[in-house]
């Protein structure tokens, strides 16, 4: 995983940096010691099942929640005491936006455009039309999906340097979803914006993400470049007769009813699979991201 273990020197003013963050709700652990750095220009897909702690981690990262332990920084500033200058560089879209609900979308955009020097009014107009959103209805009267779409437009229009989206895909139809991914990918790749988006729909992030992180049960199981993840890990299947030879340090192992064994293995220094892959009857299967996630999150 060295490829994206970003060193502390670059983390000093990294868009996002998290050290040892832990949190619990009513005694139930939500985050159990998370370390994460996000370098400029990266697009991180945060994958996890419902309840894995994705929203809690995002809220802690942005200083919207004070974690029980650990340190979170945004552009080098403590997340809980962000300056106005830092706040102006960030846009965050929660799963259920509630702010300014008594305004219409047009009123909200007019109001907010004054605070953002790079506000892109053309983008707002185009995208409101393309995503078929009502401009003159009070936002409290919009469906949750419409409300989140308006909020995504709001976030993108401010042209933020750091864009954080909590489960953005749920509210979008396939066309709008593709539009969003295109915006995310181009802004990161060209304008150097940094993006974090959480999802439980793995296929959504495979186009745009440059890195992925698996959050499971409050812990980061994996944080790696997207391409490297696909190239580095595979599933090794061993028949029952050979299963004792399985490598001891596998990311996951599942014993099947017939005694055969599936383990997630990692390429060695030399780029080869562990020796057990050459045993008679052994089979190595390439894994898509979703398969990998299911293997290690089960």
């Amino acid at each position: 995983m060295n490829a994206v273990l970003h060193m502390d020197e670059s983390a000093l003013d990294a868009p996002l940096s998290v050290r040892g963050v832990a949190h619990a709700y009513e005694g139930r652990n939500a985050l159990r010691g998370v370390d994460l750095d996000l370098p400029r220009g990266s697009v991180l897909g945060l994958i996890g099942r419902n309840g894995a702690g994705k929203s809690t981690l995002i809220r802690a990262m942005l200083g919207l929640l004070e974690p029980l332990a650990g340190e979170t920084r945004v552009f080098g500033e403590p997340a809980l005491r962000l300056s106005d200058a830092a706040k102006a560089r960030i846009a965050y879209v929660p799963q259920q936006p509630e702010a300014l609900a008594w305004l219409t979308a047009t009123q909200m955009f007019d109001y907010l455009s004054r605070f953002y020097p790079n506000w892109d009014a053309g983008f707002v107009e185009r995208t409101m039309q393309r995503w078929q959103l009502p401009t003159n209805r009070v936002m409290a009267k919009l469906s949750p999906g419409e409300r989140q779409r308006v909020d995504l437009i709001r976030a993108l229009a401010s042209q933020p340097e750091l864009l954080v989206l909590d489960e953005p895909a749920a509210a979008l139809d396939p066309v709008a979803r593709r539009d969003l991914l295109r915006e995310v990918a181009l802004r990161a790749g060209e304008a150097g914006a940094t993006v974090l988006f959480s999802t439980h729909i793995v296929s959504d992030l495979e186009r745009a993400a440059s890195e992925i992180a698996f959050l499971h049960d409050g812990q980061l199981l994996l944080h790696c470049g997207l391409d490297e993840t696909k190239e580095r890990y595979a599933r090794l299947w061993l028949p029952a007769s050979q299963s004792a030879a399985a490598p001891p340090h596998a990311l996951s192992r599942h014993r099947h009813d017939d005694g055969s064994l599936s383990v997630v293995v990692e390429r060695g220094e030399d780029g080869g699979w562990p020796e057990a892959a050459r045993l008679p009857g052994a089979r190595v299967d390439a894994l898509g991201l979703e398969d990998l996630f299911v293997e290690i999150a089960e």
């Binding site: 697009v43 295109r182 181009l186 790749g189 060209e190």
Partner: peptide, 18 residues
């Protein structure tokens, strides 16, 4: 261009550059 491919397929421009 990298931008055309990235925009058309909604993929990360860095992937196309690579």
């Amino acid at each position: 261009s990298v931008r055309e491919v990235a925009g058309f397929h909604a993929v990360n421009p860095m992937t196309v550059s690579r």
